[in-house]
Design a binder for these strands. Structure first.
Length: 643
RNA sequence: GCCGGAGUAGCUCAGUCGGCAGAGCGACGCACUCGUAAUGCGUAGGUCACGGGUUCGAUUCCCGUCUCCGGCUCCA
């Protein structure tokens, strides 16, 4: 009994029993066989050396793809565990999956790993890789597996959990052996340890067993593995690049913002230059919202506990809120973690007609959330931040059109800030939910068609929606390929119910509107943090706190430099005239280091002829003798906001 | 919150096996007056995170607290 395989080119071929994926890959081409790490039949994984048990759509997975890398990273994780068990007798090992850009493995050796431990372990791993030990797959009954891992409590727990269908078949699990080491694993793996071309351990840290802080804390070792030493070197270079772009570091260097300990953890202060950046972004946001039919509202920072009871926040979100403060005979007030209840009160302040819908209420609303101290991370994760928040009250029949327009709006805004790559997640109805199922279905299909209409790539996260409604999250890729979640669009069937919202229809009946929560930047602070890292501090001119620096060559040119500065300011530009007692070279270096987009150098010739030397960021070299009028006009043009 | 690491000048860091605290950059002053990425010389700047303990003496050792960093978890 042979197998019939459909190859990616559509051809169908038959193979005798016992044929392996490697045999097929070799037949297709030796280079393919060389790069192969595993094969798939109809999405089922096979090790290269495992006989194919059935026919179907056949595909060779190579090591230079994301799928292939995750196979070799998984194998690298095994080698890591093998090294640790070898070096630390009695070590317990838990789980070791591949992750984005690497892998980890969780251990218990009774103490944390030190940097010296990591060096030893890495050396041991390289030895194991050198020995090119074959990975051998084996299937065991649950009982046999329990015996094999008798002294490994975490493995035993996993095996006992396998009954719920995580195993490879009825009452059977697979293990992989190489040398004396054996690990429970579904696979697949590369054929032998020598097929891991480049590996490096990065760090260790604590991690809870199964992510549960009530359970034992294990020691996790992170590493990365790649298809070639060049790919590894590139990755390490990207890590350095990310460090160079760190918004916390650039915030200090560019004098944008800081996090004084006196203030409290997770709270930022904005310096004048950061203030300009923020103001430009916020002004832009207000402008485009006004242009897109939003009305600007303003609401306070605290509200009575009753309001948070009605909205359900105290029931579902209390641990994310600042504790109450008491005043007026024990009346409790909470600082707001969200703006929605306030916007709802605006809606409910009088009776609403169908003619007013969709009613779009927008606010740059500053909220405070209690974040556990360990998770704070500069602007990206703060305790106080400002949302570009709006709530749209819409008739159910208009929801689809509203969502489609909204998604276009989101993409327009993100493109205006220089982001070009987008991916979305559509989160659908969870097990616990409010609202009628057919309402959910209509909302989900409305979100789906909005995504289709926008031509956006999206993944469906089944059951990941909030209990109150489905949502779309929009992610962007930054300049070094990192993915960030920014915008969110959430349909809400619960709050209109909680607050008893209605509007009067054209038939003079009263109907409940649907509510949409949406934020484009999400948090202005976090968005700026991402922008700083995306641009490595070199913002497009319209966002630059300083748009041009004027450098006089010598003291006698200061008056002309001031004149140039005045002209630029009249054209609306933010300008510094650097009259400091320094060399021209030093002043230029300073402007460049501060990422100013334009430097204008003026000397004798310029003062006489009414010209400037113009050096633009990113240009190969400067232009000399540019007429001042021309320089002013072109810089003003280059510094205009996108809209 | 938990695990690990750290906190010395505005920034980046060295140092003190317990005995008067150091560099580079930055700031300030003086000289230089200069044409596209660092001119030279000088000066100031420190509760060695904070509080307690041990000690003749603590920046150094011990305990606690705060803050930061890497993770866990959670999210915008």
């Amino acid at each position: 009994m042979g197998v019939e395989l459909i190859l990616p080119d559509g051809s169908v071929r038959s193979y005798p029993e016992g044929t392996t994926g490697l045999d097929v890959a070799r037949e297709i081409g030796p280079r393919l066989a060389e790069a192969a790490v595993a094969v798939r039949i109809d999405d089922e994984w096979y090790d290269l050396t495992r006989p194919l048990e059935r026919g179907g759509r056949f595909r060779v997975v190579t090591r230079d793809t994301d799928e292939g890398r995750s196979v070799l990273r998984h194998s690298a994780a095994h080698v890591l565990a093998q090294a640790v068990l070898d070096l630390y007798p009695g070590a317990k090992f838990a789980i070791g999956p591949p992750i984005t850009d690497g892998f980890y493995y969780d251990f218990d050796i009774g103490r944390p790993f030190t940097p010296e431990d990591l060096e030893r372990i890495e050396a041991k791993m390289l030895e194991i890789i050198d020995e090119d030990q074959p990975f051998v797959r084996e299937e065991l009954s649950i009982d046999d597996a329990l015996e094999v891992f008798a002294d490994q409590p975490y493995k035993l727990e996993i095996i006992r959990g396998v009954d719920e269908g995580e195993g490879v078949g009825e009452g059977v699990v697979s293990v992989y052996r190489n040398d004396g080491f054996v690990d429970l694993c579904r696979g697949p793996h590369v054929p032998s340890t020598g097929r891991i071309p480049a590996v490096k351990l990065l760090r260790s840290s604590g991690a809870y067993w199964r992510g549960d802080e009530r359970r034992p804390q294990l020691q996790r070792i992170y590493g990365t593995a790649w298809e070639s030493s060049k790919a590894l070197a590139d990755h390490l270079h990207r890590l350095e690049e990310a460090e160079r772009r760190d918004h916390r570091r650039l915030g200090v260097e560019l004098d944008l913002y800081s996090f004084p300990p006196e203030l409290g953890a997770g709270l930022a202060i904005w310096h004048p230059k950061g203030g300009i950046l923020r103001r430009e972004i916020e002004d832009y946001s207000r402008r485009v919202h006004a242009d897109h039919g939003y009305e600007h509202v303003v609401t306070p920072h605290v509200a009575k506990a009753d309001l948070w009871e009605t909205s359900g926040h105290l029931r579902f979100y209390a641990e994310g809120m600042y504790p109450p403060m008491e005043l007026d005979h024990g009346q409790r007030y909470h600082v707001k973690p969200m703006n929605c209840p306030f916007h709802i009160l605006v809606y409910r302040s009088r009776s609403r007609s169908y003619r007013e819908l969709p009613l779009r209420l927008f606010e740059l609303g500053t909220v405070y959330r209690y974040e556990r101290s360990g998770v704070l991370h500069g602007l990206l994760r703060a305790r106080g931040f400002t949302q570009d928040d709006a709530h749209i009250f819409v008739a159910e029949e208009d929801l689809g059109a509203e969502l489609a327009g909204l998604l276009d709006f989101v993409l327009m805004v993100l493109r205006d800030f220089g982001f070009e790559e987008f991916e979305a997640d559509l989160s659908t109805r969870p097990e616990k939910y409010v609202g009628a199922p057919d309402l959910w279905e209509r909302a989900e299909s409305a979100l789906r068609s909005a995504l289709d209409a926008a031509g956006l790539d999206y993944a469906v996260a089944e059951g990941e929606g909030a209990f109150y409604g489905p949502k779309i999250d929009v992610h962007i890729r930054d300049a070094i390929g990192r993915r960030w979640q920014l915008s969110t669009i959430q349909v809400d069937f619960a709050q209109p119910e909680n607050f008893g919202l209605v509007y009067t229809t054209s038939e003079n009946t009263r109907t409940r509107p649907v509510m949409v929560h949406r934020a484009l930047f999400g948090s202005v602070e976090r968005f700026i943090g991402i922008l700083v890292e995306h641009y490595a501090g070199a913002f497009p001119s319209w966002l630059s706190p300083v748009q041009a620096t004027v450098v006089p060559v010598a003291d006698r040119h200061v008056a002309y430099a001031e004149e140039v500065g005045r002209r630029l300011r009249q054209a609306g530009l933010r300008v510094e005239v650097d009259a400091a007692d320094e060399t021209v070279g030093e002043k230029i270096r300073r402007a460049i280091t501060q990422k100013h987009p334009a430097v204008l150098v003026v000397g004798d010739r310029d003062a006489e002829a009414g010209t400037v030397g113009l050096r633009l960021r990113g240009a190969d070299r400067e232009r000399r003798d540019v007429p001042l009028d021309e320089a002013v006009a072109s810089l003003a043009e280059a510094s205009r906001p996108p809209r």
